[in-house]
Simulated scan of single mutants.
Amino acid sequence: MLSRDELVDLFEGLAGLPYGGEVVDQRTHALQTAAQAVAAGADDEIVLAAAFHDVGRARPVAERHRGMPHELAGAAYARDHLTARSAWAIEQHVAAKRYLVAVDPAYHDTLSPVSVRSLRVQGGPMSREEVATFESHPWSGDAISLRRWDDLAKDPQGPVLPMDDLIAAYERVMR
């Protein structure tokens, strides 16, 4: 289990870290995504997945998992420090974007320009077979929700989850 100081240090390490051309940094994005999850009534496991979904970009995580896409590095980190469900949602948040583009034609128009560019690198819309496989997983709804909150968490004036609330959620899940 991570200590309070380790959690704070991890998220403070995201402060100022660019978020691929978006107008918020990685820390703001992470805590806004978690705030979106709380506002939607998500349980603590998914609030943690929302907060940690891009942790694969954090310097210590990226260095430990060199060459891995951020969602896989983040999921590897989450498997060590969160629950299996949280780790799966983190691992699948990029796939969920590909899924949503495949099944909801209007979804593509909601993506930021940065997200549209990354979609091409990530493989574009899922195939029918990929959609069926993704939908068959019992936690696919968690990854879809996380993706939608991720898309909304790019507002420099948007609400962020206070660190004390994130720490409390972590302690409730991991005790």
Rank of each mutant, 00 (worst) to 15 (best):
L82M: 10
I167Y: 08
S3N: 01
W88C: 00
R79G: 05
R79K: 13
R57T: 09
S118E: 14
Y77P: 01
Y99W: 13
V94I: 14
G21A: 10
L31K: 00
R4D: 11
G21F: 09
Q32H: 06
A78I: 04
A168K: 13
S145D: 15
V94S: 05
D164L: 06
P159C: 09
A89S: 13
Q157P: 01
G141Y: 14
E12G: 02
S112G: 08
H65W: 12
E12D: 14
M68R: 14
D164Q: 08
L152D: 03
S86F: 11
V94M: 13
G67T: 04
A132D: 14
Q92M: 09
A40N: 01
D142Q: 13
R98F: 09
H29R: 07
P69Y: 08
E91H: 13
R79V: 10
P69K: 02
S115H: 03
F11W: 10
V38M: 03
D43E: 02
R117N: 15
T133Y: 12
A40L: 10
Y107H: 12
R98S: 09
V47D: 00
V8C: 01
S112T: 13
L31E: 02
T133H: 13
D165R: 15
E171R: 05
H93S: 11
A51D: 01
A132Y: 08
D109E: 15
A73W: 11
D155K: 13
D9A: 14
L161T: 00
D25M: 06
T133V: 15
R117W: 11
P125G: 10
G56F: 04
P159D: 14
A102V: 09
R85F: 05
A89G: 06
A132L: 08
A143Q: 08
A40C: 04
A95P: 06
A153K: 00
L166T: 03
A49F: 11
S127R: 06
P18E: 11
Y19M: 12
M68V: 03
G20F: 10
V121G: 10
A30R: 01
D80S: 14
